[in-house]
């Protein structure tokens, strides 16, 4: 598998140009004078400063693009970098195996958890295999099965949310997509064990909440979470596909906005320039944040856990 070393978003063009210039100088620099080295260092510093400025004031729409970045780390990357000893578990025992939602036993800091999350895939073949992270009913029913298993054996549940939404297709409707999502949400709320959800990329509507009705909900700094995609909101409310940026702003989709609205409990910082520029650092930050939430929740008994989760959601929209 060959990954491009870097992939720039539209708004990163000035940074891309600087980086290209640095690369160019580097290739010509070999064997020539010292002042080229100085020039390279100057340009690299300028690029980094520009990256910091750009990422310090990303608009909600730009964040949406970062959250969907093709090189952004996904579930399988976090399994490799933030967890150990992963034992994948498959199938819903009812219809099939849906690779859009993966799950299994894993250890975080040596402690056992049930890890569940969307996987989008990283190249054409794997994106097709994982259906771009858009789960069908069997994916949610697998999640239910794994949550119930976790509850039975006292394993805390950790979910990593990263989906544009549940799959909109004939077979998904036929097999009860709505019911599967509703039951999965219900299964989260019924857990007798701690549950922490982290939105690591896109938190797309019902397809996301189905595995995110948790005791504590975290979001990576440049992830987004919304009831409908900005493009969808644009075409329905503005009746044009062109207002996605406005819709992203109006809907308040960013981690920072959602923390203010008390919909999430914490924001996990990403390395400069987004998770994809340093996946290892992102995974370490994520593992630390999830671990710390789990440690706090470990002090609650199952009745208190249930109650805290219920109260958390009942409070949203109450005066």
């Amino acid at each position: 598998m060959s990954k491009p070393m870097k992939s720039y978003l539209d708004f990163e063009k000035p940074i891309a140009e600087l980086d290209a210039r640095v690369e160019e100088l580097r290739t010509t620099a070999s064997g020539s004078e010292l002042d080229i080295e100085a020039e390279i260092a100057k340009l690299a510093a300028k690029s980094e400063a520009m990256l910091a400025t750009t990422y310090g004031k990303l608009t909600p729409w730009q964040k949406t693009q970062v959250a969907r970045h093709p090189l952004r780390p996904h579930f399988v990357d976090y399994v490799a970098m933030a967890f150990t000893d992963f034992v994948p578990l498959g199938g819903d025992r009812l219809y099939g195996e849906d690779a859009a939602i993966l799950g299994g036993f894993a250890r975080l800091d040596g402690k056992r958890v049930m890890l569940i999350g969307h996987e989008k895939g990283h190249d054409t073949a794997s994106r097709i295999k994982h259906n771009f992270g858009m789960a069908k009913p069997e994916g949610y029913r697998k999640a239910i099965r794994l949550m119930e298993l976790a509850s039975k054996f006292g394993l805390p549940v950790v979910t990593l949310v990263d989906t544009a939404g549940a799959f909109p297709g004939i077979e998904a409707e036929e097999r009860g997509q709505a019911e599967a999502i509703a039951r999965s949400t219900e299964a989260c709320l019924a857990l007798k064990v701690p549950m922490v959800a982290a939105i690591v990329g896109e938190g797309g509507s019902g397809g996301a909440i189905a595995i995110a009705a948790a005791n504590k909900v975290l979001m990576l700094e440049h992830s987004v979470y919304s009831v409908i995609s900005p493009e969808g909101a644009s075409s329905i409310l503005w009746r044009t596909p062109e207002k996605a940026a406005d819709a992203a702003t109006a809907m308040k989709v960013t981690a920072q906005d959602l923390l203010d609205l008390k919909v999430i409990d914490g924001v996990v910082s990403e390395p400069l320039g987004g998770a994809h520029r340093n996946p290892e650092q992102t995974a370490a930050n994520l593992a630390k944040a999830i671990g710390s939430e789990l440690a706090k929740l470990a002090k609650l008994d199952s009745a208190a856990l249930l109650r805290q989760r219920e109260d958390r959601f009942l409070a949203i929209g109450s005066l």
Binding site: T185, L237, M251, L258
Partner: peptide, 23 residues
């Protein structure tokens, strides 16, 4: 479906109402 003008707060009504059906 959900009321888009309330953004994420409308999505949160899905678990909220489910708490009620469980009760």
């Amino acid at each position: 479906g959900a009321r888009m003008q309330e953004g994420i707060l409308s999505l949160m009504q899905m678990p909220k109402t489910t708490v009620a059906t469980r009760r």
